[in-house]
Amino acid sequence: MRRKLDQYYTPSLAVRQFLDSLDFGLSGVILEPCNGEGAISKELVNRGYKVITNDLDSDNKADTHFDLAVPLNWMLIEDVDFIITNPPFNLASEIISLAHQKAKRGVIALLRLSFIEPCLNRSEFLTINPPNQMIVTPRISFTGKGTDNITTAWFIWLKDEDLRASIKQPIRVLSK
């Protein structure tokens, strides 16, 4: 049985490993649209970034509680430079596509590696907007029990030409 609202929270270690491995620097305002327990936003704030948070579940701490799978709700979000998130996989196609329209500089999302498969709900987006980089993670347990280990990657879509030029390897694999 899947968890309510497809809530599989990001382990803090996965966020730290990823941020330490970036080929480029983040700047400006960052939105975490699926804040959950806050692992991504907390690590970004700890590193000195300005972060705005949102989460559909009003039980989770966030600045706002909009359903960002709904296009009109993105008009309620202020301008942001980057969007970094681990969206619920059942809404990932909608959220990533809308985030890509909103972000000025780029979108980074932790997703199952199978997201790259051109399914009906994302094939057009991926054809027009293939990720500039994918950083494959060691298998992650999102329940903390180790029984749900899954292969994931940080998918990176950059709009800024200078940032795209800074990428050393389009596909990288993080070690444990």
Rank of each mutant, 00 (worst) to 15 (best):
V70G: 05
V51A: 06
L91P: 05
F142A: 07
S27L: 04
I30D: 03
K176L: 04
I30T: 09
P88W: 05
K42F: 11
V29D: 08
I171Y: 06
S21T: 11
R122H: 09
N149E: 10
N54E: 02
R105A: 06
I83Q: 01
P130I: 02
D160Q: 11
E117F: 06
E124H: 07
T147H: 13
A165R: 14
R2D: 14
V80P: 12
K159V: 07
K50A: 09
D63W: 06
F115T: 03
D160P: 09
L56G: 10
P138M: 00
L111W: 01
I128K: 15
E94M: 11
D23L: 10
D79N: 15
Q133D: 05
P33T: 07
L174G: 03
W154E: 04
M1W: 03
D67N: 15
L174N: 06
A165L: 08
S114P: 01
L44G: 06
V80H: 14
R105Q: 12
I156T: 02
A109R: 01
V107P: 07
P138H: 07
R105E: 10
S41Y: 10
S12V: 08
E94T: 10
N60C: 15
Y9L: 05
D20K: 11
G146I: 05
W157G: 08
Q7C: 12
P33I: 05
L98S: 12
D148V: 14
R16D: 03
A153P: 06
R2N: 13
S175E: 14
V70Q: 15
D63G: 11
K168C: 13
N46P: 00
N149P: 00
I95S: 04
K145L: 09
L26W: 03
V51T: 11
F125A: 00
I40H: 02
Q133T: 02
R172F: 00
L126D: 01
I171D: 01
V136S: 04
I156N: 01
R164G: 07
A103V: 01
D55Y: 07
R47Y: 03
F89R: 10
K42N: 15
V136Y: 01
R16T: 13
Q169Y: 14
G28M: 08
K168Y: 00
D57Y: 14
S12Y: 04
Y49E: 01
I77R: 05
D148S: 09
I167F: 07
M134R: 10
W74F: 13
G144K: 14
H100M: 03
G28W: 09
N60G: 05
L56C: 11
N60L: 10
Q133L: 07
T53R: 07
N121S: 12
Q7M: 13
F115Q: 00
F66D: 14
D55L: 06
D57P: 12
E161H: 13
G48W: 10
H100N: 08
D160L: 08
D148K: 12
K42C: 11
L158Y: 00
F142I: 04
V15R: 09
